[in-house]
Design a protein around this nucleic acid. Structure first.
Lengths: 95, 95
DNA sequence: AAATTTGGTTTATGTTATAAACTAGTTTAT
DNA sequence: ATAAACTAGTTTATAACATAAACCAAATTT
């Protein structure tokens, strides 16, 4: 009856990150931190989890002299997100 | 940008319980346990949390000689569920 | 009457989310 | 030039949460 919800996506912050990346394709750490209104520590941890899962890629570079972390959603991430949305909709639209 | 998700509802099992109760208005413990495919222990804990929050009412009675626990969604529960669905939809339909 | 099942609750444990503290370096003010 | 403050994060500690395992009381089955 109720499909399982991917625990990696069923987290407010990780879901917000994925939601952002789905529409922007690429976003850096600071942009995501601002849009999600999260702390850097929390965001760092959650980005690492999405990365480990293969849902996003993370690229480190420099913008001038300052470090920059850029995230991009992967095909696996897109598909996981779509699957999550479909599973969740069962819960939201009670038949 | 991203509204906060009610942490009481942002839990697979509690959300499934609420989803069931939204459509059935009243359901007993065993019915919910079967529909959600959860263990009795976990369900007991999560029902208690929804109860404490005032999202559901819990009535104890006997069906013949056997104990029965009946749950019903409250107006506060309905409104919290609706609010949750609305907040969540921001995450699911990336603009 | 012993064993099993029912309908739960309580408790213990592992997982998760989060904030606090820290690191490494840059920019700004003195 | 140096101290102070800021940027961009990471690591670590702690509190909250989800879940299963163990338990209980009573009913039913054998």
């Amino acid at each position: 009856m109720f499909k399982d919800l991917d625990p990696l996506l069923h987290s407010q912050l990780r879901l917000a990150v994925m939601s952002l990346l789905i529409s922007t394709e690429e976003a850096d750490f600071v942009f995501i931190r601002e849009k999600t209104a999260s702390t850097a520590g929390n965001l760092s941890v959650q980005i690492e989890k999405l990365h480990e899962a293969g849902y996003i890629s993370v690229k480190k570079s420099f913008k001038g002299k300052m470090p920059r972390t850029t995230c991009r959603i992967s095909p696996a991430g897109i598909s996981a997100f779509e699957k999550y949305v479909e599973a969740l909709s069962e819960y939201l639209q009670p038949k």
